[in-house]
Design a protein around this nucleic acid. Structure first.
Lengths: 154, 154
DNA sequence: TATTGTTATACTCTATAACTATA
DNA sequence: TATAGTTATAGAGTATAACAATA
């Protein structure tokens, strides 16, 4: 039955999700980072300096939560808070050299992981896998309103 | 370049992971359940009554953590604690009628979601997607030691 | 009056360590 | 001596509400 095949495929997708999350979390932990803090660094890496308000929107998380994450990342030297020029209420959060080194390292590891998981798949198979995943993502995106962060994840 | 194609495919996989997690969490929250508690119910659904020790092993989480999760699920009426016949140190955790109704509902919704995401994919495409995902899972499983829970996730 | 970020408070998941009751 | 589960303590992520400074 096709229905069972679909269910088994969704199961596979969920298993892979868990495995990927576990694998990445372990790598980050070794460097003293959590998933939430890394996600914030990742947003800064892609978007450049941002206000905490902007980060809260990007991460879809409360402003109060951002305060805590930025506090921790300042303490550990990954980001700095500087006054916002032109709005004295706001601060600009930006990556330090250490922060930039980290996110650039992540890009490389990300690429390496992609190679490890998909590198020996024939190009035609990779294209078909990609197409299948696009199909799934297209169905899924409308189910989760207020996404916009597609891909920006560590 | 093939490398970039692989990276883009991994990105897609990560985006889908996030979307799936968000979608499922929202559904559960509406019923007063968190991901961790639901995961425990899911294990009971598949394995039947279990000791807290057994649950800790299955969930790969500390015994102390299980105490808290079971406390909450007892309070909300999803499981019961009964004395273990034959070992007076241990307790058996089992689903109540409410708990069973919930997990059975999850099975149905899971199937429905699979149909929604994959139902209109031609059988051949579904088979190729499935094969591609199997390839990824095969590469990924050895990277995450002590898994064994493949598929058992809510 | 609205917005930015903070303090105050609280809940959940998670962990380790020490302890009790049993094996 | 080892195991099952609890109490004690702690850290991280998350949220809402009230508040200060600024727009």
């Amino acid at each position: 039955m096709t229905g069972d095949r679909a269910t088994a495929t969704l199961d596979l997708l969920l298993e892979i999700s868990t495995l990927l999350a576990t694998d990445m979390r372990r790598d980050l932990q070794a460097r003293g980072l959590t998933a939430a803090r890394t996600h914030l660094l990742w947003v800064l890496h892609h978007a450049g300096p941002a206000t905490q308000r902007g980060l809260a929107d990007a991460l879809q998380v409360s402003p109060r939560n951002v305060t805590g994450l930025v506090d921790a990342l300042v303490d550990t030297g990954f980001v700095t808070r500087t006054p916002h020029p032109g709005d004295r209420r706001a601060v600009l959060v930006e990556l330090t050299g250490k922060g930039r080194a980290l996110t650039e390292g992540l890009v490389g590891e990300h690429r390496q992981l992609a190679g490890q998981l998909l590198g020996d798949l024939p190009a035609a198979d990779l294209a078909r896998l990609s197409a299948g995943l696009e199909h799934v993502a297209d169905k899924l995106r409308p189910l989760v309103p207020g996404d916009e962060m597609g891909g920006h994840r560590a």
